[in-house]
Design a protein around this nucleic acid. Structure first.
Lengths: 151, 151
DNA sequence: CAATAATTTGATAATGATTCTCATTATACG
DNA sequence: CGTATAATGAGAATCATTATCAAATTATTG
């Protein structure tokens, strides 16, 4: 936690920016969440701590947090951006159910290894990656079968 | 091409919908594009063929095309959805340069195999997947080094 | 082919997420 | 302190996307 705050402050400094109270509040709040969070959800959470914080500031700050490498950006079904902090889990991929939307996180060393090989093959300097497998989870498969047989 | 048109029409029929002239124009135009296309870009292309086609129709239609399994949906940096048709290339993954934005497509059989294993491990019925590696391409790396040494 | 029912269309308005503007406030630093 | 600079919050503006609705198109049926 302190580690992340320090890293964020360091990043801000490299860009001539300042660590302020709202930024700290937003980052602390963000770090306490789990999973994938829209900017709007983060705004609501942050306002529980300090209701004066503005929407624009949350958007600006979560963007900075992502730039600093403390969060990963993604996109939910509704086309809104979501953020997930990387504290604690250095890396993982996603397995998403297209029916109920739940997300299982996993990490596969073999895949990681192949990815590194691909970066090398094309002469890229690696920065990150995201992988999302989409399918139907066991519960929803059962539900679908049940519904079909009822008809 | 005809194959895709037929598949789309078949899909529409299963949903009680109709293959119309605008839908056909949009799908044909879409199939002629390459790479990742926003709905807005598709609108512009389509209007070169038939300027009367409305924006709403393009949004509605590209959505249907994706549902029919003929296109894959993604998200660009600006948060807009993009579409890529699957005719010809049944599947591939992306290697994107964070500096210049260009995208290299690749396919790694070993990764595909591991993905199948992961679906099985969690009891998911596979539907699809997307993987995007982000890094800096060789050209941009050179450009960055050059810039740094000039300073 | 005419009549009817259903779906689709395009224009426009509405929405929702994100970004911009700007006057005010907070922060850093000599 | 005092000055310069950056950050803030409120609200306006923008952008992609969706909803609304009357008019047009398409399918179906007699």
């Amino acid at each position: 936690m302190h580690d992340e705050l320090a890293r964020f402050e360091a990043y801000l400094r490299t860009r001539g920016l300042r660590m302020t109270r709202p930024r700290e509040t937003i980052l602390r709040t963000f770090l306490e969440t789990e999973g994938h969070l829209s900017a709007d959800a983060l705004l609501r959470e942050t306002r529980k701590v300090d209701p004066r914080i503005g929407q624009a500031t949350v958007f600006r700050t979560i963007h900075l947090i992502a730039e600093a490498g403390l969060a990963r950006e993604a996109c939910n079904d509704e086309g809104a951006r979501t953020y997930e902090h990387l504290a604690g889990h250095p890396h993982h991929d996603h397995l998403r159910c297209s029916q109920c939307g739940r997300i299982i996180e996993f990490c596969d060393p073999e895949i990681e290894q192949r990815q590194a090989a691909i970066f090398a093959q094309f002469g890229f300097e690696p920065q990150g990656h995201m992988m999302e497998l989409t399918g139907v989870c066991p519960e929803c498969r059962r539900a679908m079968v049940a519904r079909r047989s009822r008809q």
